[in-house]
Design a protein around this nucleic acid. Sequence first.
DNA 1: ACCCGCACCTGTAAGC
DNA 2: TGCTTACAGGTGCGGG
Length: 276
Amino acid sequence: MLVGARVTGVQLRRRDIVRQAGRVRPRDLLNGATIDTLARHGKEFAIIATDHRTLSVHLGMSGWLSWIGSDVGGTNGRATLDHVHCVWHVKGPHASGILRFRDPRRFGGLWTFLSPQDWQLGRLHARGPDALTIGPQQLTRNIRNSRRAIKAALLDQSVLAGVGNIYADEALFAAGIHPATRAARLAGDEARVRLLCRHLRSVLRRAIRAGGSTVRSFRGTQGDVGMFALKHNVYGRAGQPCVRCSYPLATAQIAQRTTVYCPHCQRKTRKAFAQA
DNA sequence: ACCCGCACCTGTAAGC
DNA sequence: TGCTTACAGGTGCGGG
């Protein structure tokens, strides 16, 4: 809906959601631009204009981009303007409508750049490879000198970009890896790193296909809930029986985040797993 | 160099 | 009902 369309108006309702010093002009927020492409790396998204102006968006914990097509008076049309920090009016050959950035907690934000290269330099330089494409060799290289828990490493966006608390827990469960396993120790086990990479990709792909994980407030651009939470095997299921072995799922705090895992299916070493 | 702990926000649900 | 507390999808920074 956005690609090929022209931004005919921008309304910034809350200045400090744009993470930039000094004045923010409408043109910084793509006013007047024609949208050329959309890009994403990890959890960061960008709208790139034909004149190379680039606006990047991070949703943080509670951010939401919503689309209200002017042709449908959908339910989003009556949605509240509470915590809507920026509004774009868009006219295009395929669709016209209103894009809104809403973020109650304001952990998310907008970043403005003159080119996609500036976006790379300014925001992506410290990010690891995207979780959907990272290979076992790259992952091994990025964790082999780290003594922290593998869960903490997966949450570190400079190791790999795109995995958060939900999908870290889900991927570790799928791969049968204990979340507290030392990253460097795991790096020494080629087979298990390969397994982890495969499951990271598969969990993320399936979650995207299901429209994401709605735990409480998450919504897709059309206001729809994501159905992947129904498929969570561990996240949000502490105390409930493991789907694989029925043993009650345990919780731990790792990197200050609630971590849910199966103490039976996720052993720290393959040896222990084999002995079980 | 690495990584922990906390701060940054608001909304919601549970407990009393 | 109303007040208090705990917790939630993320990241950036100070400092140990």
